[in-house]
């Protein structure tokens, strides 16, 4: 068991293994997303209250879910890197942050587009989910800004790991306080909790989209981690053999 992890965390082994996994993740993600898009746009029945506008759920919810997931991945791997000093996990944290920021942006943008026909406004402060997504985006910006501000890469890894962990402790508190804050006004949420049960013909495309987005995210993340690993290991022997295979001296 431990030797497996040890081997996985070794940069050259990970670099090769990730290259094998990326096409599988990409194909699986593409298949799920293709099914989810077609079924969600054309075969799922229109919502009885929101009409066809509800179909935005099929991109909004996966993006929002992955924006949280990416922060979890970032914080957990940052913590692992801090405690067990595994260099690979710092590379994962560094690679997850910009992707997470992009998915957060996507969740915000689609939520805003969805809000326009439903609430009659592009931005509704009363919706706790949109507001917490916005704060989430700021957390990602802070993390990336701190990383960019520190020149020494090892120091940047550790300092940003502390920030990611502090953020992870605070995220539930932020969500809770934003919920409380908006519950004092008239709540205007898109997805009503305890509302009418969602039909399976609506639900299956959504699940497919969530799976598909997760696989695509996995492929993107592995690709970025590979780039990080390559750059971080640029002075090592295996990178030497990798970039100069013909002239290599083994």
């Amino acid at each position: 068991m431990w030797t497996f992890f040890h081997k996985l965390a070794s940069p050259p082994h990970f670099y090769d293994l990730a290259a094998k996994f990326i096409p599988w993740f990409a194909v699986l993600g593409f298949v799920f997303v293709a099914y989810g898009t077609v079924a969600g746009l054309f075969f799922a029945p229109a919502d009885y209250q929101q009409g066809d506008a509800f179909r935005i759920i099929y991109v909004h919810v996966p993006a929002a879910y992955l924006s949280m997931m990416a922060y979890m991945i970032m914080a957990v791997s940052a913590g692992i890197g801090l405690v067990w000093r595994i260099k690979l996990s710092h590379a994962v944290a560094a690679a997850a942050a910009p992707l997470g920021a992009w998915f957060t942006f996507l969740a915000l943008a689609t939520g805003s587009i969805w809000g326009r026909p439903m609430w009659g406004t592009w931005w509704e402060w009363g919706d706790p989910r949109l507001t917490s997504e916005l704060i989430m985006l700021f957390l990602y910006f802070g993390y990336m800004a701190l990383r960019a501000a520190i020149d020494d890469p090892a120091k940047a890894d550790k300092a940003s790991a502390v920030l990611a962990l502090v953020g992870a402790v605070n995220i539930p508190i932020i969500h809770f306080s934003v919920e409380w804050w908006s519950s004092l006004h008239q709540g205007a949420t898109l997805i009503r909790e305890g509302g009418p049960a969602i039909q399976t013909s609506m639900l299956y495309p959504l699940l497919a989209m969530i799976f598909g987005f997760t696989f695509l995210f996995g492929a993107l993340l592995l690709g970025r981690v590979r780039t990080e690993v390559l750059f971080r290991e640029r002075r090592s022997r295996w990178v030497y053999n990798l970039v100069l295979p013909d002239e290599g001296r083994g």
Binding site: I135, L146, V166, G167, I174, W180, W181
Partner: peptide, 23 residues
């Protein structure tokens, strides 16, 4: 980098305090 970076790091985390305090 000074105050701008510090604000970027701290302000999102400080929002619960602001929300509960002001409300």
């Amino acid at each position: 980098r000074g105050t701008a970076l510090l604000s970027l790091l701290i302000l999102p985390l400080a929002m619960p305090v602001l929300i509960f305090g002001a409300r």
